[in-house]
Amino acid sequence: MTEAFDPGEALGMIEDEESRVRRALAVNLPVQLLAWGVAWLVGFLALWLDVRAHSTYTPPGTLSSLVFFALLLVAGVVTAIATTRATRGVGGRTARTGARLGLGWGVGYGGFVLVAGGVAVYGTPEAASVMMTAGAVLIAGLMYLLSGAVWDDPLLVRLGVGIIAVGGVASWTGPVWAPLVAGVAGGGGLLVAAGLAARRRRA
């Protein structure tokens, strides 16, 4: 770097290297949001198609529930791969923050399963179904909002607020229509956020 040294070239190299490293270390948010958006859209639609086929309310059957949870599992695996690929070897504050947020998702849904179980035991099947759909959406919205606050990401904050609103509206549409609202508005919202995140990542 001493002979025929060009400071402009060196600065360019620093900037290129900086953006390459930042990209390598950044979790691929568009891919994660896309996986969850597809899972919500298709999964909730499967549940809705199942429950709307009955004249009196009947909870979703085995097949539609299997489709729903299989899609969630795939999205979970995509998230895990995208996260470990980007953050491998990164330690310190960012790693601790990420682990705590991950704990929030796990513990949040763990607690929610207990609450929904209690409602299923003491409430009507309709109430339990509304609780399952709207509550699950609400928790995801809160976690997105929290992630946006922690990572200082306005896109995630807006997504979180929108998903919380979807959960609130879905609960008032009742046990049959709630999955449709969650799938179209919630899954659709995630897909829009995935598109915005992809555009931002390319910029």
């Binding site: 900086e18 490293v21 310190g92």
Partner: peptide, 28 residues
């Protein structure tokens, strides 16, 4: 020096209080 400059760029791209493993630095 090219290699040291790249190491510095990489470590400076991390958040405050963050570190990077030797093996990730090597593969990057």
């Amino acid at each position: 020096a090219p290699v040291r400059l790249r190491i510095m760029v990489t470590l400076a791209a991390l958040g405050p209080g963050d570190d990077l493993s030797f093996s990730r630095l090597q593969s990057l």
